[in-house]
């Protein structure tokens, strides 16, 4: 409930945009959408595609549902949300297969599973179904961007340590010994923990500075 109240206070579009990027970052603070975060962030390209796909679905669904928010009957709101989300997921899935089939293979079941990403349903239920399309879109953009940034950071670290490359380009010396674990699920946990640690450390320092003022 405390979180819902806090959201009521952050009303302006800019605040919504910033919330997703930092203060309420979906991965670092809310710990939403962990499944794709850990599973497909093994290379930067996979992570970026997954992030973009999720953000696109979030933005599309938020806009549609926010526009229809006065029409959707309360009794079937969750069913309607999931129907809208699933439609966007299916369309995104088909588009990715048409454009980049190898990426589609690499992401496998995790593309269709965007429909079950609690980040999307959470934002729709908490915000998009109660606010104007403009605010909903800004919120979706902020959350989507925050999701993309974190996934990309994880993917970059894991790919660089796991195979010495970034977006497939060899960056480290040729004889670099790859840390295979970073490509495996365990590496996802390590990298995520390190990222959250860094975030908390920066945030902790920022809080100290703010309190000192």
């Amino acid at each position: 409930m405390a979180e819902a109240l806090e959201e009521l206070h952050a009303e302006t579009a800019t605040e919504r945009l910033q919330a997703g990027l930092w203060r309420q970052n979906p991965i670092l603070v809310q710990a939403l959408g962990m499944c794709p975060t850990l599973a497909v962030s093994n290379t930067a390209a996979n992570a970026l595609t997954m992030g973009l796909a999720t953000a696109a679905v979030l933005l599309g669904s938020a806009l549609v549902i926010s526009t229809l928010r006065e029409t959707i009957p309360r009794q079937v709101r969750l069913a309607s949300f999931v129907l809208v989300i699933a439609t966007f997921v299916t369309i995104t899935d088909m588009l990715i297969e048409a454009i980049a089939i190898e990426m589609h293979r690499a992401l496998g079941a995790f593309l269709p599973l965007i429909v079950a990403n609690c980040l999307i349903l959470g934002r729709i239920e908490a915000l998009a179904s109660r606010r104007s399309p403009r605010l909903a879109a800004m919120d979706a953009l902020g959350m989507g961007a925050g999701f993309i940034c974190c996934l990309l950071a994880l993917g970059a670290v894991r790919e660089l340590l796991g195979q010495g490359t970034l977006f497939g380009i060899m960056l480290l010396p040729e004889r670099f010994e790859p840390w295979v674990v970073m490509l495996l699920p365990g590496g996802g946990f390590f990298a995520l923990a390190a990222l959250v640690l860094a975030f908390r450390w920066v945030q902790g320092h920022a809080d100290v500075v703010e309190r000192a003022r």
């Binding site: 928010r69 006065e70 029409t71 959707i72 009957p73 309360r74 709101r77 179904s129 109660r130 104007s132």
Partner: peptide, 9 residues
């Protein structure tokens, strides 16, 4: 900010 379902079919 009209809440969900005010003029629902």
């Amino acid at each position: 900010d009209k809440v969900l379902g005010n003029s629902a079919p």
